[in-house]
Write a protein that binds this DNA or RNA. Structure first.
Lengths: 189, 189
DNA sequence: GCCTGCATGTAACGTGTTACATGATTTA
DNA sequence: TAAATCATGTAACACGTTACATGCAGGC
């Protein structure tokens, strides 16, 4: 039995919260972890099968009328595996941000458009923060740690919005405080 | 000539800053855009060929002694393409954060370890911020917009460190301020 | 003469998204 | 009865990383 991918662990963890079908897992991901951990049907269904084959979860047929339906429950082995994972060091966060990329390259493309790019990115962040607040208001994962993550997500996107607004203002004024000697040196680390 | 991938645009943009070899592009990415846009040789070299075939960049052989070396320069068509891209709406930022995932699932795995997870994640963020400060101190991309992005990256990781430290403190005290009625309602959006 | 850095490339692999196919149940 | 939602699944494709192969140049 090979290493599990991080996505496999995410699915395993969600099943650990309470038994669910593949469809329910997708719905749960879409309105909770989506912003830091997404998953598609193309991953979920094959992964559920693999986890079941490895004895980490167990599927029970629970049809609703004539509609087939398999509910997965975590096993003792699955719980053990999750606790092990919890103790291992985590991978660095990875993110790709096309807005940042555009802003970074603005000088080589059209310097004058830099403030606009920054403003647009700020707007995007505000939108995301608003959607997270929406989720928070009828929050499902109500235990302390998942609530902490939700709150952090909101704070994070609020922060990004402020950051890009500030960058836009600086760029508009042409006051980007470039590293011209003293100023930049005194605060390294 | 099909759509360019976002990575293709990143490479095109870097060539637009000044002519470079594939090797130099990789080095540049590794110590500037890496934290919001990474790229590997496996992408860079094939992509440079494709961009050249499409007439967006042009490769010139400039060997150093007997060592073959191709320097790529942006063409007029390439510049045009970049300006078009600059005007299109950007994709949402996407990020995956294994530390956040662990924290989110902590309640279903081992609630008592949640503060530790949060502290570790904070430590990681401090490390990343420190590496960015290092880059900032001998910054290559010195134009206002790329400098703004670098500064933002530092502020971002500092913020993440504070965020997770704060979450850790709250979780230690068991004071996670859960959405118990009024408090949570009054500030939704 | 050896190691590090410059330089180019590819094959294999793993991961993830999109689009499609199928069909039952519930609600308007 | 039509549309939305519950439910499962896969095939094709796109994207990215890792590991390897190759070879020259410069400094110790």
């Amino acid at each position: 039995m090979k290493e599990l991918s991080a996505t496999a662990k995410a699915i395993l963890g969600i099943v650990a919260m309470r038994p669910r079908t593949g469809y329910e897992i997708k719905a749960f991901v879409d309105n909770s972890t989506r912003f830091f951990w997404a998953a598609s049907y193309g991953q979920i269904y094959p992964e559920l099968k693999r986890l079941a084959e490895n004895g980490l979860i167990e599927g029970t047929d629970e049809p609703t009328g004539g509609r087939r339906r398999t509910v997965y429950t975590i096993t003792a082995a699955g719980k053990k595996r999750l606790r092990e994972w919890h103790r291992e060091p985590s991978a660095d966060l990875e993110f790709r941000d096309e807005g940042m990329l555009k802003l970074f390259l603005a000088g080589a493309i059209e310097p004058a458009s830099a403030p606009r790019i920054a403003r647009e990115r700020a707007e995007q962040a505000r939108g995301t923060a608003a959607r997270l607040r929406e989720i928070e208001s009828h929050a499902e994962g109500k235990d302390p740690s998942s609530y902490a993550v939700l709150t952090s997500g909101i704070a994070f996107h609020d922060f990004m919005a402020d950051l890009f607004d500030k960058a836009a203002r600086d760029l508009e004024r042409g006051q980007t405080k470039r590293p011209t000697g003293a100023g930049a040196q005194e605060r390294r680390n």
